[in-house]
């Protein structure tokens, strides 16, 4: 077999896998519809507002509900030190550079 044939086969396989990943993504998101609907139902029934991704501190658990200054609630110099705090974007005003 020529090297170019092998290369075309190799590239074809990888491209096929890429297409397969797109099909798989579509398929899995279709299969997850039921589960997502269930989660949405729970969010609606329990009136939830946030993802339970950052449970380490009480002010990172409900990011949409907490105040900007909550990390400093223990005392004014209680600097924010939880890792997930660094993942939260600063206020828009600061980011706009004004």
């Amino acid at each position: 077999m020529r090297k170019s044939d092998l290369f075309i086969l190799y590239l074809g396989t990888l491209s096929g896998l890429l297409l397969l990943s797109l099909v798989d993504a579509g398929n899995r998101s279709h299969l997850a519809t039921q589960q997502l609907a269930e989660t949405r139902r729970e969010v609606r029934a329990l009136e939830l507002t946030d993802l339970s991704l950052f449970t380490e501190a009480r002010y990172t658990r409900h990011l949409s509900q907490s105040d900007r200054h909550t990390p400093f609630q223990d005392h004014p110099l209680a600097l924010e030190h939880f890792p997930s705090g660094s993942l939260v974007a600063p206020p828009t005003l600061l980011r706009s550079g004004r």
Binding site: A25, S29, L36, S52, L53, F54, T55, E56, F82, P83
Partner: peptide, 19 residues
């Protein structure tokens, strides 16, 4: 580890692929 930080309770979830 980046998302988890110091969380003791971390959800086990499988992400739905949205591309």
């Amino acid at each position: 580890p980046v998302l988890k930080g110091w969380s003791v309770l971390y959800p086990e979830f499988r992400l739905t692929p949205f591309i």
